[in-house]
Design a protein around this nucleic acid. Structure first.
Lengths: 114, 114
DNA sequence: TATAGCAGTTACCTATGAGTAAGTAGTTAC
DNA sequence: GTAACTACTTACTCATAGGTAACTGCTATA
């Protein structure tokens, strides 16, 4: 058991949500992580998965996710240079969060869009 | 059973995540919802809970959440006008999503901040 | 030789998110 | 009568997010 300083207090929950939101924030980070839950992918594959992300934004957000240890970038020095992106264990730990996000997204769509 | 058109396909998950992100996006919406999970509250109470939100942003984001049917606003015509905000059933349905967000936020903090 | 693909980068522009400060209208407490 | 609280609104500003378009250097293919 952890020390029972209630982890349900409002200030505690607010701080935790801010930590998470800082990483998640933006239009493209979650979509990128979702794309990578299907396995290691290359720049162009992620771009095609998402469909409407520009190379500029994709590059920028991949860097941010790498800095936050959510994804890892591997460069293969093959002759047409190959780069592969994949989720780190920390990135994989977003599994349940993503599931709930998707669950709720569907629920919301059914309720509102009808 | 639902029709088994795989709800796990990448395009399906991307669409669902976008629906959810559109509502969640921004610095203040999740904190507001978290504050209201502790029950019906008034403008000033939410502001004090969150601590560093300006009345302008709070007012703006409360309106957005109301438009999306996440919260409801009730005006009491008592003599100093009283306004109360509370979660709708749709807002309450964010429960699990919030839990996972907070779980992951804590996990992230432990992993990175150390 | 030319076209297309890979993995981006760079420059430029605009829209929006968010902060600051002050004001409003009514009421209550000192 | 004046200060303070309630629930905001308005005006102004700045920084960032995000979009568009063009360009880079390399290689493979027709």
């Amino acid at each position: 058991m952890e020390s029972e300083t209630k982890n349900n207090t409002c200030p505690f929950r607010l701080r935790a949500s801010r930590d998470a939101l800082e990483i998640i924030q933006g239009k493209w980070r979650i979509p990128i992580v979702i794309s990578l839950t299907y396995g290691t992918k290359r720049f162009g594959e992620i771009q095609r998965d998402i469909g409407d992300v520009s190379p500029k934004m994709l590059s920028q957000e991949l860097k941010a996710l790498e800095e936050n240890k959510i994804i890892s970038r591997t460069l293969y020095d093959s002759m047409p240079v190959t780069v592969e992106y994949s989720l780190t264990p920390l990135g994989q730990s977003m599994n349940k969060l993503l599931d709930e996000l998707l669950n709720w997204g569907n629920h919301f769509r059914k309720e509102i869009v009808g």
